[in-house]
């Protein structure tokens, strides 16, 4: 199998886009490595109180 055809994906960054990319890749049949520099995932969004325009809790 050629180098590019390894069925695994590395996602660098565990913020909202990293988490979504990881979930979608995993649910599409790829093994995912999700790497983040901090002890927990969530990134900037995890700091937000609520989100616009619905004022839903960011958590």
């Amino acid at each position: 199998m050629s180098e590019k055809n390894i069925g695994s994906v590395l996602v660098l960054g565990g913020g909202i886009s990293g988490m979504q990319a990881a979930i979608d890749c995993a649910n599409s049949g790829f093994y995912v490595y999700l790497v983040d520099s901090s002890p927990s995932i969530g990134g900037m969004m995890a700091k937000l109180n609520k989100t616009f325009p619905t004022n839903d809790c960011a958590m």
């Binding site: 180098e3 590019k4 055809n5 390894i6 069925g7 695994s8 994906v9 590395l10 996602v11 660098l12 960054g13 565990g14 913020g15 886009s17 990293g18 990319a21 890749c25 790829f30 490595y33 990134g43 900037m44």
Partner: peptide, 10 residues
């Protein structure tokens, strides 16, 4: 060893 890298560095 991975086939694709996705950068979500924020």
């Amino acid at each position: 060893r991975v086939g694709v890298v996705i950068l979500t560095l924020g």
